[in-house]
Amino acid sequence: MRSLLVRLVVVLFVTNITHSAICQSLAFPRAVTNQATPFVNSAFALTIDPERMRVAIGGYRGDVVVYETTSLAEITRLESDGGMVLATAFDPQGRFLLVAGDPTRLNVYRTLDWTLQRTIKLPFRCGFLCCHPKLPIVALSGKGTSLLFYNFETGTLVAVSIAGWNAVLS
């Protein structure tokens, strides 16, 4: 009888501990931070560089804010040059941040010091962009446009896809 009581106490103790742990992880996913960040305009573009712990967001007002992912502290704020930001991406090596939107341009920022390296004038309003995994090439498109390939280190147009299709989303 005594043995059973001891086991009962032990099991109830373990159950209680486990229950606490379970309650803490019940919500999946759960919002741990939902605060208003300093970013206060309607967002259209979001990209992350998790290995270097930074996330960049841009939108209606045209400025791009880069946050440190752990603390959500603002790393830098890239001022608007007059139009909406519609797409943004870090290159795979994390050396550049590419920002596209209105006016029809692609801005290339160096992440070392967040200086604007170059602005590439585009023939259309770019809504989508993605970087090549190995080459300094970015593919850009707008709604219903051909696909453009730029070398973002030199700013030169590498190719225009004329494969018979027009991009809608990329």
């Binding site: 931070t33 309607s42 967002a43």
Partner: peptide, 17 residues
């Protein structure tokens, strides 16, 4: 990280437990 096209609180962060 989630971005929103709305009047306020445009960047929310969710923890996936």
């Amino acid at each position: 990280f989630v971005s929103h096209a709305r009047a306020k609180n445009q960047l929310t962060v969710w923890h996936l437990s």
